[in-house]
């Protein structure tokens, strides 16, 4: 059984008299431990998919199953718990709390979990043990993103969702982040769903989901995923 299953999921935004179908009845599934990349141009609906999958937004219709939970039927409170225990989120703009140090930002996540990873371990996993006591403003973009990833990982989520994690980073930093994510996926057997508009990074994925105008136009398993080092864009 797949870890994530989308079944005819639809999301409509009503803007006055116009109804926009951001997500227009999509179906796909992601297996456990896969590194999945959702790729598409701006406005293809990939962020909406991520929001719905992350429990931050709800679908207008359709069913989404994550593990044994049908998240479309969860109550507000259950959704909070879902986010709390099942999902790790990596934001495009890192969204670190500026007033907390790197370590504290991670602890912010771990303090609400049932079985969190050790903070030090999470930090060393992203190679930032030495910057533990720095404030976000004192870190570079890549470092901030690493902290953000560490924060997500520290929760030991079932699903790691990444929203354009390299979008605000330069090429090399972006690569190192992608490498970190791929390594995490492989070493920790973590299921990662990554959203990007950049098709160039699809070869590294185990599964590629291509979207266009709110529809999934391709959902294939990459039999030979490449290491990040091997790809260029």
């Amino acid at each position: 059984m797949s870890l994530v299953e989308f079944e005819n999921v639809r999301k409509e935004y009503i803007m006055g008299e116009v109804t926009i179908n951001a997500v227009d009845g999509i179906d796909f599934n992601i297996e456990e431990g896969e590194f999945a990349v959702v790729v598409g141009t701006s406005g293809a609906g990939k962020t909406t998919v991520l929001n719905i999958l992350g429990g931050m937004d709800s679908a207008t219709s359709g069913t989404i199953r994550v593990g044994d939970k049908n998240i479309t039927s969860l109550s507000d409170k259950e959704l909070i718990n879902y986010r709390r225990y099942d999902i790790g989120f990596v934001f495009q703009f890192y969204n670190l709390i500026p007033n907390l140090t790197a370590k504290e930002n991670i602890e912010l996540a771990t303090q609400i979990c049932e079985n969190p990873m050790d903070t030090e371990k999470a930090l060393s996993a992203v190679g930032l043990s030495e910057r533990a006591n720095n404030f976000p403003a004192q870190l570079s973009g890549g470092e901030q993103q690493r902290v953000s990833i560490a924060r997500a990982l520290a929760k030991r989520p079932k699903l790691l969702l990444c929203d354009e994690p390299t979008g605000a980073l330069d090429y090399n930093t972006g690569r190192s982040i992608l490498k970190l994510l791929q390594d995490t996926c492989r070493e920790e057997k973590m299921t990662v769903v990554l959203i990007t508009h950049n098709s160039a990074i699809t070869p590294m994925a185990d599964r590629i989901i291509r979207m266009k105008s709110g529809k999934v136009i391709e959902n294939r398993v990459n039999e030979n995923p490449k290491n990040v080092e091997e790809i260029e864009w």
């Binding site: 992350g54 931050m56 409170k77 909070i80 718990n81 879902y82 986010r83 709390r84 225990y85 999902i87 989120f89 934001f91 969204n95 709390i97 500026p98 912010l108 996540a109 609400i112 924060r151 929760k155």
Partner: peptide
């Protein structure tokens, strides 16, 4: 933003 973030993190 901060509030949204911690909400995403699963703060009730």
């Amino acid at each position: 933003r901060e509030i949204a973030t911690i909400k995403v993190l699963g703060f009730n």
